[in-house]
Design a protein around this nucleic acid. Sequence first.
DNA 1: TAACTTCTGTTATAATTATAACATAATTTT
DNA 2: AAAATTATGTTATAATTATAACAGAAGTTA
Lengths: 216, 216
Amino acid sequence: MAKIKFMRNKILPEKTVERLSEYRRTLLNCLAQGKTHIYSHELAGLHNITAVQVRRDIMFIGYSSSQRKGYDVNELIMVIGSILDSDEGLNVAVIGIGNLGRAVTHYFMGKRSKLNIVASFDIDPDKAGREFVGVKCYSIDDFNDMVKSHNILIALLTVPADAAVDTVAKLIDGGIEGILNFTTVPLNVPDHVYLEEYDMITSLEKIAYFVKAKKG
Amino acid sequence: MAKIKFMRNKILPEKTVERLSEYRRTLLNCLAQGKTHIYSHELAGLHNITAVQVRRDIMFIGYSSSQRKGYDVNELIMVIGSILDSDEGLNVAVIGIGNLGRAVTHYFMGKRSKLNIVASFDIDPDKAGREFVGVKCYSIDDFNDMVKSHNILIALLTVPADAAVDTVAKLIDGGIEGILNFTTVPLNVPDHVYLEEYDMITSLEKIAYFVKAKKG
DNA sequence: TAACTTCTGTTATAATTATAACATAATTTT
DNA sequence: AAAATTATGTTATAATTATAACAGAAGTTA
């Protein structure tokens, strides 16, 4: 049985965390295909990165394979899980249950057992009390109470652009600690809140720039 | 009138390009609100970053304000445009016109005048010839011809996970230079192709990790 | 008008992230 | 069984990115 060093208490680099999430998904696929071991260079090949990077990431989490056979797929999935997941799971709310909010909820449901969408919120009073994509909707006025009673830590922000800034203030006030921003509006949050932008236009403009830059 | 130095021919840092895209959007909002000048610290405040970073980014693109009044909003929008946009516009194709492909197309249409979705492609022969969200769909078999005749450079990959790897091979073969990957499958592309992952689960798992890490 | 603010542009330094170099161990080959 | 091969784990170096430091200009105040 492979060793797992005590490196869990250190905070990992952002990029490593990102890649661990991606590795896990690939490893789950491998497992489904009956693959029990995988070399660092194989995993690297699948992810368009170098084997060194894979090994370094895995070193960071303190896992170590029975050498020369590659990593044990099952074990590695477990170890990554022990890093990324919290035992009890983490509760997530969708803010704004319009088209985008519903699409996101639908896409997400059941994809990760340790991340649970436990409620949605909307400003529209007609929506409060109803259920969308299997998730109950509450009035945004009940947000603070719900955050506490349901231990909600993360918000998916799917409100219209013009409501983004005000809504975010509410989220902060309610005690949210992480936000995934689906709106096109940049947000200003205090240091203790972890914010991640999820913005297709910026991604595309970036691609366009580098495609163009290469040509001329 | 402000100066624009000749720094256009240098390739900008990735992160700067990302932020420029975000600045522009904010600036367009400012313009709509009748704001003609903006200080670096104002722009910074809106984006949760420091004023130094804003100034440094703007230095990179060689723009310089009439000092102490802040940047001219209109001018800055133009300069960023001259960096990010190509004069003739850049042609984009959606690969896989299922639910996700249509949602993406719908979301994107008309958002950026210099990025045009000119075609979609699908493996389903029933879809070829029809129009979805105002964009004509072609058989994936016609991809190579279409890329050449319509000068398509960028692909939005919205096929089901199990088709991702094979489809990407087709895209590369056809001569695509940039890919925005909406699938959950990591992709392996040659060096000359610019690839960007667009993955909600990874973003969320990253947030979850850092929220958890902060708590102890 | 001289001292003081305060905003920009730029250079210098620090932090983060990626890559390279290499020692070590398991396995295979000769 | 010795030499060669080929993995990993780790340290050292390079590249990228962010932050700090500061000079100079435009305005403000005393």
